[in-house]
Design a protein around this nucleic acid. Structure first.
Length: 562
RNA sequence: UGGGGGAUCGUCUAGUGGUAGGACACGUGACUCUGGAUCACGGCACCGGGGUUCGAAUCCCUGUCCCCCAGCCA
């Protein structure tokens, strides 16, 4: 690669430029290393965008490598889900799909090498004793009595560990570094533990498995990774990785750590997300309220929006809590350009046009997307009985009310001006029907006399509308930082009880018939909605992806406070 | 308590000795057949204290606060 001066936009690119300039590396290769023990979330999306994005920017490649060193927690189904999510985001790892388990044999040989060099030993302390011997912060550790076994004995024991002669916990292989180190990771870290568990790829071939710390650096090295980008949490593991690489004398990647993403009103940790799933607080990993990629996909977030978001939040080393409003902004921005407009009434209120002919049906023309005329137009049926939104009528409206009220004239989008002349109530005083007149001169939404109306409402023709269920979502948690809890409580106590509202008697325009799961629309004046896989031919199910920005709700709130 | 890292508008982030900028959020206005979209305008920040310098977010000293690490998890 010749051009080494990509404009730095963050500290990572700055370092890479320097490495290229000084000749430490003459190419760029990164990797994204998920553990197949759960689903990817928006925090992973940040890492994916950085890993794949940087490689692409520098004309290099990014490997996908599954960190599958713990068979007790990992499953093949997660491998599939992770691959699907990365592809959905729009990234491609070509044929470079690797597994830490591909390197088990090599790792084993390197372990033998360290034993022979007197740099690793088999320890037979119990897990509790190892913990005790490790010491604490400011308290130096003690050396294990097994630390000075002979090379021959270590070799023999380690080989027998592999051969399956011991029970779990009986022995481990440890690196011989420094029990006094201020860095806990250097206090003779465990390299191998015995696990009599089948592995999703290697089956029953192994009963000893490498620890992540022993595997990761060497895997990077084998793959010729130049820049190993990871979480800040691994900052003080770096000296250990360096130590292993130096002892082995193999290719030495550079590790650079950056701060993980935190998003307001949500949690981003596989452990907590698993808790939500297993506790039944959500319907699954792909619940549309989940910050998982599967959840966001089902919710209707376009992958482009997630990538735009990741670009905008930047990369740095400081702790952060990104406002979820930024993510929503990116989603709206993308959907505004792309989503076809349709009309759907969430909470229907019957409207009868008293001066409209009983059996007449007209087709009015509606533009599919004012942002993109290329998306064309469609016909929408109009007739004497319609539905409008309940909240678009007020019997006694406040100031600045642009919608329907007794005597008020509004425009029905794409159709006619109507004026409310009567209000029908049931025995409990609930408004059940509006009687309105329409002005035949205003077809298409304009009037020959040029008079103006304040508001424009969406509507559907009662006889033609399709039944639909709409699921409205709000933040899963009621606090920006769900981890901020009262004494003795945990984040579950911060769950938002109103995060899901199901509306099951919605009416949508007939053009939506047969809409495919996953397709996204803007319901005029309401927000963006995505067809859920739960839809049936009889009933469409929509997820509200995100609302439109709503100026009126602010005005109304302001008026309430007066 | 030992080790590692971090501190710039409400939030995220630029800045690398020379006018502290952008985005989101917020507020005001214009426009509008979506109270959408769009556009314009506005307020808002260098953790504290010393020093070096003509000039410091940036360099030096000093203090404070926050995060991570004591798995045979990753």
């Amino acid at each position: 690669m010749s051009e080494t001066n990509v404009a730095p936009t963050d500290f990572i690119r700055e370092i890479i430029n320097e490495d290229l300039r000084t000749g430490r590396f003459n190419y760029v290769r990164t990797r994204f290393p998920p553990e197949p023990n759960g689903y990817l979330h928006i925090g992973h999306a940040k890492a994916i965008c950085i890993d794949f994005g940087i490689a692409e920017e520098y004309g290099g490649v990014c490997n996908l490598r599954f960190d599958d060193t713990n068979p007790a927690k990992e499953e093949a189904k997660y491998v599939q889900a992770i691959k699907e999510d990365i592809r959905w985001l729009g990234f491609d790892w070509g044929d470079r799909e690797y597994y830490a388990s591909d390197y088990f044999e090599q790792l084993y040989e390197w372990a033998i090498q360290l034993i022979k060099d007197g740099k690793a030993y088999v320890d037979s302390l119990s897990p509790e004793e190892i913990k005790e011997y490790r010491g604490g912060f400011g308290v130096p550790g003690k050396e294990s009595p097994y630390r000075n076994r002979s090379v021959e004995e270590n070799l023999d024991l380690f080989q027998r560990m592999r051969a399956g002669e011991f029970r779990e916990g009986e022995h481990v292989l440890r690196a011989k570094i420094d029990m006094q180190s201020g860095n806990m990771n250097l206090r003779d870290p465990v390299m191998y533990r015995i696990l009599h568990a089948p592995h999703h790829r290697t089956g029953n071939r192994w009963c000893i498995y490498p620890m992540y710390d022993w595997a990761h650096g060497q895997c990077d090295s084998i793959e010729g990774i130049t820049h190993s980008l990871c979480d800040l949490a691994y900052e003080d593991h770096r000296p250990l990785y360096d130590w292993f690489l130096d002892q082995l004398g193999i290719f030495h990647p550079r590790q650079i750590e950056f701060a993980r993403l935190n998003l307001s009103y949500t949690v981003l940790s596989k452990r907590y997300l698993l808790r939500l799933v297993e506790g039944g607080y959500v319907s699954g990993w792909d619940d549309p309220r989940m910050p998982t990629l599967a959840g966001m996909r089902r919710r209707g977030y376009p992958p482009e929006a997630i990538r735009a978001f990741c670009d905008r939040i930047g990369v740095a080393k400081s702790e952060n809590l990104v406002d979820i409003a930024l993510l929503e902004h990116c989603v709206r921005e993308e959907l505004n350009k792309r989503a076809p407009r349709v009309m759907g009434v969430l909470r229907p209120l019957r409207v009868v046009l008293v001066n409209y002919p009983e059996d007449q049906v007209e087709e009015v023309e509606a533009i599919n997307n004012p942002e993109d005329p290329g998306m064309g137009v469609r016909k929408v049926p109009f007739s004497r009985v319609l539905y409008v939104e309940q909240e678009d009528f007020m019997e006694d409206p406040p100031r600045k009310w642009f919608r329907l009220a007794p005597g008020r004239e509004v425009r029905l989008k794409h159709a006619y001006y109507i004026t409310c002349v009567d209000v029908v109530k049931d025995e409990r005083g609930q408004v059940v029907e509006l009687r309105c007149t329409y002005d035949p001169e205003t077809r298409g939404g304009g009037s020959p006399d040029g008079r103006r109306v304040l508001g424009t409402l969406h509507w559907v023709s009662a006889a033609h509308a399709l039944d639909a269920e709409v699921r409205l979502y709000d933040y899963l948690f009621s606090k920006p930082d769900p981890m901020e809890v009262e004494e003795g409580k945990d984040f579950i106590s911060n769950l938002n009880p109103n995060s899901l509202e199901v509306l099951d008697s919605c009416k949508v325009e007939p053009s939506l018939r047969g809409a495919a799961p996953g397709s996204r629309f803007q319901f005029l004046r309401q927000g963006y909605f995505c067809v859920d896989p739960d839809s049936t031919p009889q009933k469409l199910v929509f997820n509200r992806t995100v609302t439109l920005k709503d100026t009126w709700s602010k005005i109304a709130k302001g008026q309430q406070e007066e």
